[in-house]
């Protein structure tokens, strides 16, 4: 078993279902057990990073607050797919994420890739 990180992918927008939240729980859980973990936002999932969210009126918790704590809780890196950011008109990200163009080499740099 290599010591390289687990990559957890979020590719759905927030609030429409619980998939992203439950993916985030997996990432936080790995971090809590001191397993290296990174998050990738891809496709419509980049909307998790949009500034100015307020899910209060939906009766939900605003996800950017959880996400802002990701690195504090030990998530090693946040990545966002460059093309998807452009598709959804995202220039600013909250919290900031490293932009990548995920390809075979990118995915292979992780020990596991988890996509709910």
């Amino acid at each position: 078993m290599t010591d390289s990180a687990v990559l957890v992918v979020i590719d759905q927008p927030p609030y429409g279902d619980w998939q992203g939240r439950e993916a985030l729980d997996m990432a936080f859980s790995l971090a809590a057990f001191d397993r290296p973990v990174a998050l990738l936002f891809r496709g419509p999932g980049v909307n998790w990073l949009r500034p100015g969210q307020d899910a209060g009126p939906l009766g939900q918790k605003t996800v950017s607050r959880n996400l802002g704590a990701a690195t504090i809780f030990g998530v090693e890196a946040l990545y966002a797919d460059t093309t998807s950011l452009a598709h959804f008109g995202l220039r600013d990200m909250e919290p900031p994420a490293e932009t990548v163009s995920p390809d075979a080499a990118f995915y292979r740099s992780f020990s596991h890739v988890v996509q709910l």
Partner: peptide, 21 residues
Amino acid sequence: AGLGEWVQALADSDRVIHFPG
């Protein structure tokens, strides 16, 4: 059980096969 069981599976098992929706 908690997600710790999943974390443990990643550590213990040679293969972890995921069956998503």
